[in-house]
């Protein structure tokens, strides 16, 4: 398992290559990469991501442990950035490795659902018209109920 909460940019392709290498017992790797999406009709200058140092890492590690208990996983990688990002920047990635694809896919979805609303990050969108905190949605909360 590797969990990194960091300000600096990372190369998702290089991370995937490193994560996938050296396992002969792994048949499937699934990755999700999150990218800063611009606002439809109000171009964004930046997205700022605040987090809770200490709790963030602990909460993500607990989610990964939970995923490992639910699915047959070989390895897990979670990288999540904080600080000031631009539209198009990579915010985060999750990679799961398993013997079989079903576990890898489901674990990646499970981790994304939990990262979305149980890891202490808060996004703020800054545009020419001002700055606004991104609100959590009902959808994010209902996504958790299926697990």
């Amino acid at each position: 398992m590797r969990v990194s909460v960091q300000e600096q940019a990372f190369d998702a392709g290089a991370e995937l290559t490193a994560f996938s290498a050296g396992h002969s017992d792994i048949g499937a790797v699934v990755t999700f990469t999150g990218i800063v999406r611009d606002l439809a009709d109000d171009p964004m200058d930046a997205m700022e991501i605040e987090h809770y140092p200490g709790m963030t890492e602990k909460a993500i590690i607990a989610m990964v442990e939970d995923a490992k208990a639910r699915f047959a996983l070989g390895d897990v990688l979670v990288i999540h950035r904080h600080g000031r990002l631009q539209p198009g920047d990579v915010i985060m990635m999750v990679a799961t490795a398993a013997r079989h694809r079903k576990d890898a896919f489901e674990a990646a979805t499970f981790l994304m659902d939990y990262l979305k609303s149980r890891a202490p990050f808060w996004k703020r969108e800054i545009s020419a018209t001002g700055a606004a905190w991104v609100a959590a949605t009902e959808e994010d909360e209902t996504a958790l109920s299926r697990w």
Partner: peptide
Amino acid sequence: VALDQELADFDAPLAGVREVAFFPPMTGG
């Protein structure tokens, strides 16, 4: 609310707690 960096409820007891954090619903991912 989080008590010592674990999510908690508003009716949770504070005995022995060193750190309390208040924040809006999280928006990670």
